[in-house]
């Protein structure tokens, strides 16, 4: 029987020449990223093709995606976050489609790879830090000095603040990666039980897998939302320096 971790195996599909000594072969992970962005684009563009004043179901879904992210951004950041809306929306849809496509049997979940989620989280971290320095210059460093704390305590507090800031990309990436990997592994383990217990005993893990599949779809949405909302919160910190 296949290992529950086999589903995370990267397989090069098209061998490509190395760029600067790095292997950039087109893999199953890359294939599912392509499928995700293709489907997400088709979902939005085809949904909006009628540009109806009173939207149908499909157009409603496209509009709801837009307004969901738009509301999230304006609630967390306010109008100052408007220029970053396309990025937050892209991030949310990319993770959401990656998560949801992973639920398709025999597909590949690229969001279950720590290097992918870390790449996204580190991009967010880098971008937010650049925005903060561009907006506030050196004054941004006051973000690491909590207000109303005795000077003696600052020797302790400032390193903690800096450390917590630096761990943001780590927690952000591990949260998504761990959720997706754990969920998929669990599904695979119970699917293995179905085969193992056979026609008489297999029904219980099958029923459980049905429930878990529903739960996993919820997690797909939830983790995409959490990633996007945390990005908004970091963006708000960078723009407004609230603490």
């Amino acid at each position: 029987m296949a290992s529950p971790l086999e589903q995370f195996q990267i397989e090069p599909l098209i061998k490509l020449p190395k760029i600067a000594g790095i292997d950039v072969s087109y893999t199953n992970s890359a294939l599912w990223m392509t499928i995700a962005i293709g489907l997400a684009t088709l979902f939005l563009v085809l949904g909006m093709r009628q540009r109806a004043l009173v939207p149908g179901r499909w157009q409603s879904m496209a509009e709801i995606s837009y307004e969901f992210v738009s509301t999230m951004l304006s609630e967390q950041v306010g109008s100052a976050g408007r220029p970053y809306f396309p990025f937050i929306f892209t991030l949310f849809m990319f993770i959401l489609f990656g998560n949801l496509l992973g639920m398709v049997p025999y597909s590949f979940t690229f969001t279950s790879h720590i290097i992918v989620t870390f790449g996204l989280a580190f991009t967010v971290f880098l971008g937010v830090t650049i925005i903060a320095f561009a907006k506030h210059g050196v004054h941004f460093l006051s973000f690491f000095v909590p207000k109303g704390v005795p000077v003696v305590m600052l020797f302790l507090m400032v390193p903690i603040e800096i450390l917590s800031y630096l761990t943001r990309p780590v927690s952000l990436s591990i949260r998504l990666f761990a959720n997706m990997m754990a969920g998929h592994t669990m599904l695979k383990v119970f699917a293995g039980f179905i085969i193992g217990l056979g026609i008489w005993g297999g029904w219980a893990p099958l029923a459980l897998n049905v429930v878990l599949t529903g739960f996993e779809i919820l997690v797909c949405f939830l983790q995409a939302y959490v990633f996007a909302v945390l990005t908004c919160i970091y963006l708000n910190d960078a723009i407004h320096l609230h603490h």
């Binding site: 990267i10 090069p12 760029i19 790095i22 292997d23 950039v24 072969s25 087109y26 893999t27 992970s29 890359a30 990223m33 392509t34 995700a36 962005i37 990319f94 690229f110 790879h113 290097i115 992918v116 790449g119 996204l120």
Partner: peptide, 12 residues
């Protein structure tokens, strides 16, 4: 596989 994944993540 870190290199190829990051590369195709960036492209996508």
């Amino acid at each position: 596989f870190f290199g190829t994944q990051l590369f195709w993540l960036a492209v996508s």
